[in-house]
Design a protein around this nucleic acid. Sequence first.
DNA 1: CGTCCCTGACGAACACCGTTCTACTCAACG
DNA 2: CGTTGAGTAGAACGGTGTTCGTCAGGGACG
Lengths: 245, 245
Amino acid sequence: MPVDPRRHRAARHAKPSAQPAAEAAAPAPRKKPITVERITDAALEVVATEGYDALTIRRVAAVLGTGPSSLYAHIVNKDDLDDLLIGRLYAGVVLPAPDPAAWRAQLLDVYAQIRDLYLAYPGVSRAALAAVPTNLETLRVGEGILAILLAGGIDPRTAGWARDALSLYVGAYALEQSLVRRRRAEQDEEWVLSREEVVERFAALPAERFPHTRRHAAELASGTGPDRFAFALGLLVDGLRPAAD
Amino acid sequence: MPVDPRRHRAARHAKPSAQPAAEAAAPAPRKKPITVERITDAALEVVATEGYDALTIRRVAAVLGTGPSSLYAHIVNKDDLDDLLIGRLYAGVVLPAPDPAAWRAQLLDVYAQIRDLYLAYPGVSRAALAAVPTNLETLRVGEGILAILLAGGIDPRTAGWARDALSLYVGAYALEQSLVRRRRAEQDEEWVLSREEVVERFAALPAERFPHTRRHAAELASGTGPDRFAFALGLLVDGLRPAAD
DNA sequence: CGTCCCTGACGAACACCGTTCTACTCAACG
DNA sequence: CGTTGAGTAGAACGGTGTTCGTCAGGGACG
């Protein structure tokens, strides 16, 4: 049995039943052995250049110059690869030391980091939304966000729920934004629209069925992606009131 | 050319350049011809019973007792099938007559309908998040939501952005919820956890790296899905203030 | 009535996907 | 030197979306 990648996977998650985990420091590989490290690198490269939809086992194997079956000695699954990927991504999130005076700004900053990460790797937010929540790196970021909220005087239960809501929104926002950009990139289809076209099309709707969409077409199409992002996060964050001010 | 399903697709969306669209009312099909209607029915049935992941062209064709290629005379794409699906789903959403005195409750009611729809057809929210926003049925529901917000005195631009944010959150919520339920259904894996197990695992995290997650494990795992849904929607909706009260 | 033609249905096939089976290489160890 | 076992792969299986070429059948027309 080739070391059983399931064991490696377990080590990347909150431990089910504290095992000391047999230490095995591989000392000096000679040529270029396939490692979880290199697989993750290759996967990240694929996602960065071609988007998450292009992230297939075969594509990653091709980057490493081998066949698909070679990866299965190191990863369990495609799901496992996704897990590796978002672990690596979240490892890059820098968490501020919680400052009770600036908790809102700190929160917005961390989520802006996550958003930019998602947008830099188009489509990964899909994997992030589907990720098992016990990945150690996502737990680390979650702990950091929780720390900021608690420092802001938010009670623990509310903080946990707010963290959930914010994470869900950011994931969905990035997913939609990635889809829009992809559609814009494949502009061979006629389904991509400029802002003016959207306004025009809304304004052309039958007045009796779509009076408001018609009348306010310009306002509906207004605002850039980041504007809408800031608006939604503001709504969520501003609704949080420190307990016993 | 077999009628070109692209034309049918276009008819289901906000029109790009108002064409009268040649009327062709097929009067009396004799046996059981394949229609867009029947394809949509079959697709809905598959999703309801086996989830969105099981929705494949072949699966739908099998329900109709034919091969996969037969569908391509009526639909353009798998994407088109998704479009049909969410159009049908949204057609079932009932929109209240906007009441300025009850706009918050009306808003929550409509989004609860959408949430329940998504949860009744596990995974469809993925298709909904990816849907082209010009589908006529989604436009109809969007118009209804907009009407409620405007009746509540929200200014048009804010209303549009709020509608976006709410829709994104509801979609992401339903997606995550569907995934959780699916994982719970395939409990052969050890990656499914009861609430007690989650608390236990959080409490077992290293104290120096995860102090808050550890201490507030119970609060973090508290609350049912609907609780968290209501909390997040409350946060978003309560942040909206009628202009010039 | 006979013929044509066009529309919808469909089987086969293509390229790709995740995953598994099996064989093979090759360094480490007794 | 012989054995072992971990890591590397090639081939294959069953699945996916989509396209191609064929074919039946019925309405239109001479």
